[in-house]
Simulated scan of single mutants.
Amino acid sequence: MIDKLDSALRFHQEALSLRARRQEVLSSNVANADTPNFKARDFDFGSKLTEAVERGRQSLSMSMSTTSSRHLSGEAHAAGESDLMYRTPNQSSLDGNTVEMDVERVNFADNAMRYEANLTILSSKIKSLLSAVQ
């Protein structure tokens, strides 16, 4: 039963995790808009979500050792910087900074809206599962 519940919610879990990570990357770009030679970074959300769902996060998870069978198992997931790509600017700047504030604002707002949509969908899915249980 738990496996079925986990598989039903895995996609939304991965999507929210990746959206939050992308929001951090985009906010880092905005924060460094005036930093000389800073290179704007981003990642392809669609391909990362597909990889994460297929992989099931098993290869990147690390579990804690327990001293008793009654302990809860804890997991830590690695979030590497290796999958971040540099963004190619439309206009070059004199100081070498590749952050374009208009592009960053659009991507930030779009990602925030999609994060909220994922939360709404997940909430309705949980409510329907709860009503099915009751």
Rank of each mutant, 00 (worst) to 15 (best):
R57E: 10
M1K: 04
R22A: 02
S65L: 08
S17H: 06
L130I: 13
I2L: 12
M85I: 10
S7R: 13
Q91K: 15
L26M: 04
V25D: 03
V25E: 07
S65D: 12
F11V: 07
L130D: 06
F45W: 06
G46R: 04
M1P: 03
E100P: 00
A117I: 04
N32G: 08
L94V: 15
A31D: 05
M101C: 06
D95P: 07
G80P: 08
T66P: 03
V30Y: 02
L16Y: 00
A31H: 05
R57F: 08
E14L: 07
E100K: 06
E75Q: 14
S59H: 09
L9I: 12
E100Y: 05
T35P: 01
T35M: 07
Q134V: 12
R114M: 07
S59N: 09
P36S: 01
R70K: 13
A52Q: 00
S28N: 14
S93N: 14
S63I: 08
H71P: 00
S93T: 14
A109Y: 06
Q58G: 14
S27A: 15
T35R: 06
N118K: 04
S131I: 08
E24M: 12
G46M: 00
I121N: 05
R105A: 09
V53S: 02
L9T: 11
S65E: 10
D34V: 00
N90H: 15
T98F: 10
L9Y: 10
Q134W: 09
T67D: 13
S123L: 07
S61N: 10
L130C: 03
D6I: 13
D110Q: 14
S124A: 13
A8G: 13
L122S: 11
D110E: 14
N32E: 07
T66Q: 13
H77E: 07
D102R: 08
V99Q: 00
S63K: 11
Q91V: 14
A20F: 00
E51N: 14
S17Y: 04
A52P: 01
L119T: 01
L130R: 10
A52T: 07
